[in-house]
Design a protein around this nucleic acid. Structure first.
Lengths: 154, 154
DNA sequence: ATGCGACCTAAACTTAACTTTAGGTCAAGG
DNA sequence: CCTTGACCTAAAGTTAAGTTTAGGTCGCAT
């Protein structure tokens, strides 16, 4: 198959290491927009290799497909993205990554403090709601590593 | 209800911020082992507050319930865990955390390099299989951010 | 002793991110 | 022309980590 005709889904799968079914799923989620040839088969641009690779990397960082889609939607619509287009996204990406590293470091430091003092459950323990990730379901506050501040220890 | 009689599941839920259904689920997964009163209702030790808090923290760090269970299984069986018992687990925990932070930093640094050079898809890009988390399903290697090393860029 | 909220079990439902299956079509080689 | 593997769609299945529902029981205050 000539490059001008685009890549088949199997070729894309071979290049990226993704399963064919996963690529179809990504299309259904709006992460990628192949066109169809006369026979109804998907055809992809070479730039889609980069798009899919970005999806894979972002997933490793814990991004959900909708989040990744939001990032990809910033790429230009009418033309093949340039290195500059990708750099803009990578920069945004990096900001999130920096924040995540910082959060982990803070958590680790709190844990260090708790190892040192052996508390791990008392109100003075700093491991209270360190990150809001787990509390996003509307269940109210969660009191970590033991009792609530006003509770007495038995 | 007196403390000697243990805590009810509702009390435990109120203290930890967890849903009652979640606590029952954790029991089903072997993370916690309440006894039953004469009427068949669950009764928990106060030490279980700490156990559940640990579960919540470990989840924030991305641990799965089976992984958390493996950690908790290291606690002594016959007696209430001491601060020292918890410290041993927290130390192990910290090791994993350090490794995770280091991985993220490496990834970020690779991303930095790519922002600088604008490659983001060429074989020289370092963002190849940076972490094995995504590749644990037996799908073979995944080639990130574009083409495989031997592929020609079009 | 009675009513009501807290509790019980079992089973079905939920979401994300896919894979698998079933039944058919396309495309390229011999 | 014919076969065969790659491709198509739609729908059902999968896993983790729970929640929700349905139908009943417990326990405590009045």
């Amino acid at each position: 198959m000539k490059y001008k005709d685009g890549l088949s889904i199997g070729e894309l799968a071979g290049r990226t290491g993704l399963a064919v079914s996963a690529i179809r799923y990504y299309e259904a989620q709006g992460l990628i927009r192949p066109w169809r040839n006369s026979g109804g088969q998907r055809r992809f641009e070479r730039a889609d290799l980069r798009r899919l690779s970005f999806v894979m990397i972002a997933q490793q960082f814990g991004f959900s497909l909708p989040e990744i889609r939001a990032l990809l939607d910033q790429l230009p619509g009418g033309r093949t993205p340039t290195a500059g287009d990708w750099t803009a996204i990578a920069t945004e990406f990096r900001t999130v990554l920096d924040a995540r590293i910082e959060t982990l470091q803070k958590l680790r430091d709190n844990l260090d403090g708790c190892i040192g003092c052996g508390c791990l459950s008392l109100p003075k323990c700093k491991l209270y709601n360190p990150e809001d990730r787990a509390g996003t379901k509307g269940h109210g506050p969660r009191y970590l590593m033991g009792d609530r501040p006003e509770a007495t220890e038995g």
